[in-house]
Design a protein around this nucleic acid. Structure first.
Lengths: 337, 337
DNA sequence: TTGTACGCGTTATCAT
DNA sequence: ATGATAACGCGTACAA
């Protein structure tokens, strides 16, 4: 088909609009127009150009197009923890929806030591937006984005800055409601399995628990620190359960709840008869038959949808005021409460 | 700091090298050199320029730089299934390592209906490489990449094409070795829980099982089709176990093995006393205490490392012959065999 | 060591 | 409707 002749050991250059123009006997502009929807161009000519382009293997170069001052269609996603089931599910959904909108997500692993420099380097690309999923971002990076007029949307820890939009789950309402439900069932001795000390989500989820307990004239009997993983939840729960007599264990996330549930069963505790174990997030494993975990859903669909809505609004009106959209949680009452 | 004045409702333009040059009272080339390692430039001048650049918030525009004919530093990753634990763990690792090498991964969700058009669109960017993780790729896309001289590296289903490098797990050796181990333990009535009919990995893993059985004068007693998920494995195993008397169930992946393990326990079967249940991949959940699954490790670290090696070699020698690197599996003998 | 001038591939503008 | 030409922002060969 193509008369492209490979030169040994040398990288062949990309086919350009100029080459297509020559091959089709038209001007370069005509080629550009042939690939621009709604541009003035004779239908027959457009068809002809597209044929030639297909044979030569021509595609407009998105880099050169992005230089024009329009949008680059590149969106960076900063992922706090690529090993967390919730974050990966979240990013999976987000990537799919961005793809559908013709936005191309560049992923940055926020877990590595080089995360800060990585984001600095990615900012060399004129991004359409920067989306934060969990993790924390230095104030410096935030101000850089503001300066470059790169829209930032944060999901997880809210960022208080003039041009940053936030999507925020009503964490404390979720744990409050869950705690109230457990109290209504007759639970009175509550334990809380917290996440790492500096995790915003853990602290605020605990806040909801305390609120509900206080309203009922109760208080927390025991608390232990975990690391948001299954293994961490397993060992933390083992310690907590062996030293405290409680009848309800609220975990700051599902991964730890799954670990805690296993620990409780290993210790001969009947769940939910002797002990309630509940989590937060409703990750896919929570519904696995061997866990059937009662939890608070932190809905990914709704969060991702809102991120895309905010992105659209921000791109339409770059100077608009920052917004914070709150996402409602849902109680998922399965078999462990 | 900066004297940038925001214009209401209008997106501020990026700071360019020209602006820095003017502000610093030097030529535009000097600014370029100030950000190019090893370029001839007076140290004092470079320092001065960098200071001014920092104040103005200047960064070289990677889009314009990529136009120069060098590398774009953009790498696309096509992910077969963003919902599979193995694939997401794989991609997480890959993203982190690419970040460390200053390569920026653009993710494409191979699961959606729009996957084919998505990859077409991403090819508008002059990619340094395209990495395939699972899923399948149309021959058309492959030939396009070859035409554009975009290196392709496939992990999962190997691609037979002149310029495509492959990283391939020795699936059948893994299942063969596992089957031999079970036979040596006295298992004689084997069942196989397969993945979707068109999945390369499932078919080849089954091949290893059959090979080992044949060598021992045995044959498969039962087989059932699953969908590579926990829920699918659970229901498929339930059917299979209720209709066939077997003492070993080999599952095409860990997710199904976890589902099968749960099903077996629910049916009152003692694992491993009455029945061996084994998986493939060694996903993180396989080592969770409640499963402690015996499985065949499909090592992510090694695969990712080899992908990066192949990428490096391919970038160094674009015209080199395609290679296929094989990855050895490892038997992980836990508590279910 | 430094500045000038050109090319990268595209889209947008402006005549025609 | 179409073709010439000017940006876009950068790196770099070349001349000084």
């Amino acid at each position: 088909m193509s008369d492209y002749i490979p030169v040994h050991g040398q990288r062949p250059r990309r086919v350009t609009a100029r080459m297509v123009a020559e091959a089709a006997g038209v001007s370069r502009s005509a080629v550009s127009r042939a690939f621009t929807d709604g541009a003035y161009l004779d239908d027959k000519k457009r068809t002809k150009i597209r044929e030639v382009a297909a044979i030569l293997g021509y595609k407009p170069n998105a880099l050169a197009a992005g230089l024009q001052g329009g949008r680059s269609h590149l969106v960076a996603i900063f992922v706090g923890d690529m090993r967390s089931p919730y974050d990966t599910a979240f990013v999976g959904q987000l990537v799919g929806e961005l793809n559908a909108l013709n936005k191309w997500p560049i992923l940055i692993d926020g877990g590595g030591q080089r995360a800060a420099t990585a984001i600095e380097d990615v900012l060399r690309y004129p991004l359409d937006a920067l989306i934060l999923r969990g993790g924390s971002m230095s104030a410096d990076i935030v101000s850089q984005c503001t300066k470059y007029a790169i829209p930032m949307i944060s999901s997880g820890r809210p960022i208080e800055a003039p041009d940053v939009d936030n999507v925020c789950c009503r964490h404390s309402d979720g744990t409050k409601e869950m705690t109230e439900t457990l109290i209504r069932q007759g639970r009175t001795r509550f334990g809380f399995l917290a996440g790492p000390a500096d995790f915003y989500s853990s602290a605020i989820r605990k806040g909801g628990v305390l609120e509900a307990l206080k309203a009922a004239g109760l208080s927390l009997v025991a608390e232990s620190l975990g690391d948001y993983t299954v293994a961490g939840g397993h060992s933390s729960a083992k310690q907590l359960l062996s030293s405290h007599a409680i009848d309800a264990l609220i975990c700051a996330n599902d991964a730890m709840a799954i670990g805690a549930l296993t620990a409780a069963r290993e210790m001969g505790l009947a769940v939910p008869k002797d002990l309630s174990v509940v989590g937060f997030d409703d990750i896919s494993m929570a519904s696995w038959p061997m866990f059937d975990l009662t939890t608070v859903r932190n809905p990914i669909d709704a969060s991702v949808t809102e991120i895309l809505n905010l992105l659209e609004r921000r791109l339409a009106t770059p100077g608009k005021q920052s917004e914070t959209v709150f996402i409602d949680t849902q109680l998922v009452l399965r078999a462990t409460h």
